[in-house]
Design a protein around this nucleic acid. Structure first.
Length: 680
RNA sequence: GGCGGUGUAGCUCAGUCGGUUAGAGCACAGGCUUCAUAAGCCUGGGGUCGGCGGUUCAAGUCCGCCCGCCGCUACCA
C-alpha cells in the first residue's frame, strides 16, 4: 500500500465560548481517524482554526469593553490547551481572523464575481439606533402580532406558534439596548447558488462523498427545487472582513469560516515549506471534513460550491456525526451535564472519554448518549478489567527473563487476531469505531480465556516449568500488545507505555501481524486507573457550579454589567395603587407534573393554605424537574385573570426571573413565610 | 409547528441478500479461580424485536398507517 496524502478537518469552534464535551465528540473522532491513518503509514494532517467573525463576537467585545482580537487570543489559547490535553493532535491551529484567511477570501470572492454569481438587492431590516447596528431576528423581541403575548422573538411566537417578520412585532425592542428599532434598508449581496445546481446534484449523488441518509436528505429537501440565493453580506458594523468591491459590506461569517480550513493549511505550508497546491489542488490528496449534523447545509452545498467556483479540490468525504446527550438528555447546565472540556480534565483521564466515545461512534447521524453510570462501567470493565489486566496478570512473571526467543504455539490465537485486524482496520476507515471497539474487546476475551486455561500462577510454583511459564506469558503479552496496537489511535498514551514495557515502540499498524520475541520486559507499572465514580460526581457538581461563572458567554446574561437590564428596560412608572392591584401570595407547590405534549410547560398545583389552590401552567420545564419543585415555596400572582392555554386553564403565574430556556430562576421567600401570606 | 433520526433483554447496542431455536457487552444470580487495580473464567434467569395491518412458503428485516422517544430549527432553508 503506498502512502496517501490526507487532509482532515473538524468544524472550527466558535471563538465566543469554551469547548465542552459535545465539541470533544468531533475532535476526538477526527483525531482517532488521523492517528489511525498515520499508523497505517499515510501522510495525514489535521488542520484546525478558530471561527472568529460575526455578531456574537462583536457584542461580547462591547460588553467586556475590550477589542475583539484580545478575546480571540484568549479563547484560542484556551481551545488549544483543551485539545492538547485531550491528546488531539493538530499540525496547525489558525484563525479565520488572519491575513492568510483574508487573502483567500478575496480569492474565492474574485472567482464568484468573475463567474457572475453575485447579485445585489435591497433588504429591509430592523436597526438599533442606540447600538448603531442592524439586528438579527434573535436580537429583537416584542409583542406577538397575532396573540398579544409579550417578549417574543423577532420571527416566531412561542406562545401561539405564529411566524412573522420582525417588522410586524408590536412594541419591538432591541435585546441589546432596549431601544426601539427602526426599519431601515441596506444593500445585501447574494450568491446565485442555483447556477451550480447541476454540479451540486451530481456531487451529492456521486458515491461515498456523503452518507446515504445525508445525500437523500439534501436531494429531497434542497436539490428538488431551485436553490435559493445565499445572502452573503452584512452591513457595517460587523466583525469580519470588508468586501473589497462593496465598501461598508462585510462577508457573512459562514463565507469566511470554511475558508479557514484552507488558510490554516496555507499558514502551515508557509511555516513548514510544504507545497500548498499539493494539499488543496491535487487530485491525489484526500480531503475529509468531519462535522456535526447541525451544519450539513453549509458543508455539503455551499462549501462544495465555493471550492468548485474557486478551483480547489473538493472533499472526498464529508463525515457527519450525531449529537451528544448526557444521561439521556440534552446537555443541561442546571443538571450539571453541560461539562466543559476543562472541567472534565480537572477530574478525569482524557483516555476514558476517548475510549467511551470510540465505543459509541458509528457511521450514522444517530445521536448517542454518555450515560454516566455506563461510562464508569465500560471503562472499568473493558479497559482495566479486560485489556490492561492482561499485562497486569502476566508481565511480572517474566520480569528479568523477558519474552521467549521463539514465539510458542498458541493454538492459532495470535494469527486469528491478526486476521481480525483487517476487519478492525476497515471499521476504523469507515468511521465505525463502535464496531472496531467491539471486535477488539472480543479479542481481549479470547486472551483472558487463554490465560485462565494456562494458569501461569500455577506454573510459577513449579521451578521445572519455568520455560512453560515464559511461553505462556509471551503469548499473553503478545496478544495484549496486539490489542494495544489496535487501540493506539484511541489511546495513544497507553500505546506509548506499552512500547516501554515491552521494549519496542508501537509505530505501525502492521506490527500487529508479527509477534514480538526475545525482548526484555520492564517492571510493570499500572497503565490506567479505574474510574472513581466519586470523581464523576464531583465533575457534575463542578459543572453545575460553573453555570453562574460561565454566564458571561451569553449575550443576554452577564453579572452586574447591565446587560440584563438593557435586555429588558424598566417599565413605565406605576402608582402604589397600580401595584396593589396585583395580589402576590406565598404558595406551596403541592404538585408538579409533566404535561403530555407540552415542550416548555409544567403543570403546578399551588396551595395558598386552607383549601385555596391554583392550577398554573408555568413555562419552566427546561429549567426545573417536577420533583425539584414539589413542596417548595414560591411567589404567585393570585388574582391574575385565568387564561385558557392549549393544555388547560392557567389560574395564575409563578414569579421568576431570567431570560428563559434553562435560565429561569424562581423566586422563593426566606424561611418562615407560610402559604397564603401576601407580598407587600 | 417544520425537518431529520430512532424504537430489539433492566441499560447500551449488533443483527449481512427476508431463511434454523433473535445475539453481545454491561448489570443481576449461582459456582469456580486467587496471577491481576474487588480483576478473570464457567453457568443461568431475562425478549409479543413499539403497535396494527399487508406482501411472502418464510418478516426484527420489505410496504402502509398509527404511537413513543431524540435531535436540529441559524438574517442562512
Amino acid at each position: 500500500m503506498s502512502a496517501q496524502r490526507i487532509l482532515v478537518t473538524a468544524a472550527l469552534p466558535y471563538a465566543n465560548g469554551h469547548l465542552h464535551i459535545g465539541h470533544m465528540v468531533e475532535f476526538i473522532q477526527t483525531d482517532i481517524w488521523c492517528r489511525f491513518q498515520r499508523l497505517l503509514g499515510h501522510n495525514c494532517i489535521f488542520v484546525h482554526a478558530d471561527d472568529t467573525h460575526g455578531t456574537a463576537t462583536m457584542i461580547r467585545a462591547r460588553q467586556e469593553g475590550r477589542p475583539e482580537v484580545e478575546i480571540l487570543a484568549d479563547m484560542q489559547a484556551a481551545h488549544m490547551a483543551d485539545l492538547a490535553d485531550f491528546q488531539v493532535e493538530q499540525v496547525h491551529y489558525g484563525s479565520t481572523n488572519s491575513e492568510a484567511n483574508r487573502a483567500l477570501c478575496h480569492e474565492f470572492w474574485a472567482a464568484f464575481r468573475e463567474q457572475g454569481l453575485v447579485a445585489e438587492r435591497d433588504v429591509e431590516q430592523l436597526f438599533d439606533p442606540e447600538a448603531g447596528m442592524f439586528l438579527a431576528d434573535r436580537f429583537v423581541k416584542g409583542t406577538c402580532p397575532r396573540c398579544g403575548e409579550p417578549d417574543q422573538y423577532g420571527d416566531h411566537c412561542e406562545q401561539c406558534n405564529a411566524t412573522y417578520s420582525p417588522s410586524e412585532l408590536v412594541n419591538p425592542y432591541s435585546t441589546l439596548t432596549g431601544a426601539k428599532p427602526e426599519l431601515r434598508t441596506s444593500k445585501h449581496l447574494f450568491v446565485q447558488i442555483h447556477q451550480l445546481q447541476d454540479f451540486l446534484t451530481e456531487w451529492v449523488d456521486a458515491n461515498d462523498h456523503l452518507q446515504d441518509e445525508v445525500a437523500n436528505y439534501l436531494k429531497g429537501f434542497f436539490l428538488g427545487e431551485p436553490l435559493k440565493e445565499w445572502d452573503i453580506s452584512r452591513p457595517a458594523p460587523y466583525f469580519g472582513f470588508e468586501i473589497p468591491d462593496a465598501p461598508g459590506q462585510f462577508w457573512y461569517v459562514w463565507f469566511d469560516a470554511p475558508i479557514g480550513y484552507v488558510s490554516s493549511t496555507k499558514e502551515w505550508c508557509d511555516k513548514t515549506g510544504e507545497d500548498f497546491d499539493t494539499w488543496w489542488r491535487s487530485p491525489d490528496t484526500r480531503i475529509v471534513h468531519v462535522i456535526g449534523k447541525d451544519i450539513i447545509y453549509f458543508h455539503c452545498l455551499f462549501w462544495p460550491a465555493m471550492l468548485k467556483t474557486a478551483g480547489f479540490r473538493l472533499p472526498e468525504r464529508v463525515q457527519i456525526h450525531g449529537m451528544l446527550t448526557v444521561d439521556g438528555a440534552k446537555m443541561s447546565k442546571s443538571r450539571g451535564t453541560f461539562v466543559l472540556a476543562r472541567t472534565y480534565l480537572e477530574h478525569l483521564d482524557p483516555a476514558y472519554l476517548r475510549y467511551f466515545y470510540a465505543s459509541k461512534l458509528t457511521n450514522t447521524l444517530d445521536d448517542f448518549d454518555l450515560g454516566l453510570e455506563e461510562f464508569v462501567n465500560k471503562i472499568n470493565s473493558d479497559l482495566v478489567g479486560k485489556v490492561v489486566n492482561l499485562a497486569s496478570r502476566t508481565a511480572k512473571f517474566v520480569k528479568g527473563v523477558g519474552l521467549s526467543a521463539a514465539y510458542p504455539d498458541d493454538g492459532g490465537l495470535f494469527e486469528a487476531a491478526a486476521t481480525e485486524g483487517d476487519a478492525i482496520r476497515d471499521a476504523y476507515e469507515g468511521f465505525e469505531y463502535a464496531q472496531a471497539m467491539r471486535r477488539i474487546m472480543a479479542l481481549a476475551d479470547r486472551a483472558n480465556e487463554y490465560v485462565e486455561a494456562e494458569a501461569p500462577w500455577a506454573l510459577k510454583k513449579d521451578p521445572e516449568k519455568a520455560e512453560a511459564l515464559q511461553d505462556v506469558c509471551t503469548v499473553a503479552l503478545n496478544l495484549f500488545r496486539q490489542l494495544v496496537i489496535y487501540l493506539a489511535p484511541v489511546l495513544p498514551r497507553l500505546a506509548a507505555q506499552v512500547g516501554e514495557l515491552l521494549g519496542a515502540p508501537i509505530e505501525r499498524w502492521d506490527e500487529s501481524r508479527t509477534p514480538l520475541v526475545g525482548t526484555p520486559v520492564a517492571k510493570f507499572k499500572h497503565l490506567m486507573q479505574r474510574v472513581d465514580p466519586e470523581k464523576v460526581k464531583a465533575m457534575i457538581e463542578d459543572s453545575r457550579e460553573a453555570q453562574a461563572a460561565s454566564e458571561t458567554a451569553a449575550p443576554t446574561a452577564a453579572a452586574d454589567d447591565g446587560a440584563a437590564l438593557a435586555a429588558e428596560p424598566i417599565a413605565d412608572e406605576c402608582t402604589y395603587d397600580d401595584f396593589m392591584k396585583i395580589d402576590l401570595r406565598v404558595a406551596r407547590v403541592a404538585k408538579a407534573e409533566h404535561v403530555d405534549g407540552a415542550k416548555k410547560l409544567l403543570k403546578l398545583t399551588l396551595s395558598l393554605g386552607g383549601d385555596e389552590t391554583r392550577t398554573v401552567f408555568a413555562g419552566i420545564k427546561s429549567a426545573y424537574q417536577p420533583e425539584q419543585l414539589e413542596g417548595r415555596l414560591v411567589v404567585c400572582v393570585a388574582n391574575l385573570a385565568p387564561r385558557k392555554m392549549k393544555f388547560g386553564v392557567s389560574e395564575g403565574m409563578v414569579v421568576a426571573a431570567g431570560p428563559g430556556g434553562q435560565d429561569v430562576f424562581l423566586l422563593s421567600p426566606d424561611s418562615g413565610a407560610v402559604p397564603g401570606q401576601r407580598v407587600h
